[in-house]
């Protein structure tokens, strides 16, 4: 599904991702763990096409298609979703309207018809309930006045309604209390399927206690320094990143 080969990328001429390769097959869940400042968010921005985050070498393909030559919105339509570490507020645009606009924009790019208002609402209601946000919240401005945890759950609702092929979740677990963490983990587990992949970017092992990854990669200073099974997360927790690097 996602293939990253020797990717070098950065911001404004500073190289932050320094030769990263990763192979994420369809249906698998991989975790990327790394200390603060190791380039986790930068990687997520480069993959999702944020302006200013340029790849200088290497390649990234999604289902064989060159991801790096697409604009951000085209990547979304191709099935990529990024759950942001810090979701953004858009005052005056309701969550419901934002999500419907996004979904229809994607469908249009894919040459599909718009979703009917009724179907959309049914779906949104269902997911809002699953991730424990009221419809009242959904009618408010995008993330406006939301707590950190509510913002993260809102990202999950968007993911569930947009149904991406590949979800990059950047520290979705941080800022969540234990109940919310369970809700989010349940949501991810429910969405796991043979043709959908997840890349969980995280700092702690917490989320991985609930969502069992197929592989764990350790990211340090813009490179993957180790790859292993779920047990690697536990090892990290015990020994810290410094111990692992050695």
């Amino acid at each position: 599904m996602l293939k990253i080969e020797d990717l070098h990328a950065g911001v404004e001429g500073t190289e932050i991702i320094k030769g990263l390769s990763l192979d994420l097959p369809a249906g698998e869940v991989h975790a990327i763990m790394g200390p603060n400042g190791s380039g986790k968010s930068t990687l997520s921005y480069v993959l999702s096409g944020r302006d200013g985050y340029e790849a200088t070498a290497g390649s990234v393909t999604l289902d064989g298609e060159d991801l790096l030559s697409m604009e951000a919105h085209e990547r979304a339509a191709a099935g990529l979703f990024l759950g942001l570490q810090y979701p953004v507020e858009i005052p005056g645009v309701s969550n419901v309207n934002f999500l419907r606009t996004a979904l229809n924009a994607q469908r249009k790019l894919r040459g599909e018809d718009e979703i009917s208002a009724a179907d959309f609402l049914r779906e949104t209601r269902k997911e809002a309930e699953a991730f424990d946000l009221s419809m009242d919240h959904m009618k408010r401005g995008v993330n406006v006045g939301f707590s950190g945890g509510e913002k993260k759950r809102n990202e999950m609702i968007q993911m569930a309604v947009l149904k991406p092929r590949l979800a990059l979740l950047d520290e979705t677990d941080s800022g969540l209390d234990i109940d919310a963490l369970r809700v989010v983990a349940d949501g991810i587990n429910r969405m796991r399927s043979p043709d959908r992949s997840f890349l969980l970017i995280t700092h702690y092992q917490r989320l991985l206690d609930y969502v069992k990854p197929d592989k764990v990669h350790v990211l340090q200073d813009g490179r993957i320094t180790r790859t292993g099974g779920p047990e690697l997360a536990a090892e990290l927790e015990r020994e810290g990143y410094v111990g692992i690097a050695a």
Partner: peptide, 24 residues
């Protein structure tokens, strides 16, 4: 830039993203 990227990462092209934010 955060707002623009957020909207674009959800599937809106740049002009649609601007229009959405301005309408908000």
């Amino acid at each position: 830039d955060d707002q623009l990227f957020y909207a674009m990462s959800r599937g809106l092209d740049e002009e649609e993203a601007v229009a959405l934010i301005v309408n908000g």
